[in-house]
């Protein structure tokens, strides 16, 4: 009798764990927050905006350091982009902005669509996105050009992975094409972006965009920066040799180099606003 009770004991002990065989939450465990914001430095990152969220973006690049003391090492000169982007749903976002580049004025718009999302435990090992951006030059010197000669297109595949809690890596093979005074052009580049968390709310970012097609004028964009997150803001500060602020410009129209001190200080300011509240 005692033996029998003793034998039964383990059954009760097992019974104590009532949730052991419960099927939990059915949603796959997505790996999120690979980057603090939707940009690495200039490149689009593998982050999406939440559905119904508007992100106001102000991007600022000073002049390059080699402008010398008379121009306060570039601080007197600036390119600026004002823009915003909006999360249409959890996998689709769109943005629009206006920037200057000397006398050249640009209006740009883009969409970014997530096709794959990284899931914990390598069930889906990486995140993949498609990006398409278009730039329209609107400065006075372009007034004589018809519409097709003012547009530059950028298509990008963005593949990235949050490798550990602190380190994320992404590749952005890019194609930039358009026509100018009746001549068509296209350039292929491979964007490389990564970030390492320094603390919970700060990261160090590195970005390099080698242009693979032969073009003697285009220099490879190289940027080093830091993300600082404070409440609803993300503040990105960096050094870069790129002056332009949309894909057509910083991928295929970077003219200065680091070894000639063609680098500039810059920052991106991101402020999110919830426009449509998520339904519970």
């Amino acid at each position: 009798m005692f033996v029998a009770l003793f034998l039964v004991q383990p059954i009760f002990a097992q019974d104590d764990d009532l949730l052991g065989d419960e099927p939990g939450n059915n949603e796959p465990e997505y790996v999120d927050f690979a980057f603090k914001t939707t940009k690495v430095v200039n490149l689009q990152s593998i982050e999406m905006l939440g559905a119904g969220v508007f992100d106001f973006k102000m991007n600022h690049r000073f002049g390059s350091i080699n402008n010398g003391a008379v121009n306060a090492f570039g601080l007197d000169l600036a390119t600026i982009r004002f823009g915003g982007e909006y999360g249409i749903n959890k996998n689709l976002m769109a943005g629009i902005g206006r920037s200057n580049l000397g006398n050249l004025k640009n209006v740009d718009a883009y969409v970014k669509y997530r096709i794959l999302r990284q899931v914990k435990g390598n069930k889906m090992p990486f995140t993949a996105m498609l990006f398409y951006g278009i730039e329209n030059k609107i400065g006075p010197e372009y007034d004589q050009l018809d519409y097709t000669n003012r547009l530059t297109h950028t298509a990008q595949l963005i593949i990235g992975k949050k490798i550990s809690e602190g380190f994320s890596f992404q590749l952005s093979p890019s194609l930039v094409w358009g026509s100018y005074f009746g001549r068509t052009y296209s350039n292929i580049a491979l964007g490389i972006g990564m970030r390492q968390k320094l603390t919970k709310r700060t990261t160090m970012n590195l970005e390099y965009i080698p242009v693979l097609t032969n073009n003697e004028y285009i220099q490879n964009s190289l940027s080093v920066g830091f993300d600082i997150e404070t409440g609803g803001h993300v503040f990105q500060i960096h050094f870069t040799n790129s002056k332009g602020l949309n894909e057509a410009q910083f991928i295929a129209n970077t003219r200065e180099t680091w070894d000639t001190y063609g680098i500039r200080f810059g920052f991106n300011l991101s402020r999110v606003f919830t426009i449509v509240k998520p339904k519970n």
Binding site: L18, N25, D32
Partner: peptide, 25 residues
């Protein structure tokens, strides 16, 4: 015996950015 299991990522906030900070930070 009383048991509860709460999946942390399933908390829904009024603002997406709050959910991000809640989960990550």
């Amino acid at each position: 015996v009383v048991q509860f299991k709460v999946p942390v990522n399933s908390f829904q906030f009024e603002k997406a950015v709050m959910q991000t900070h809640f989960q990550e930070n």
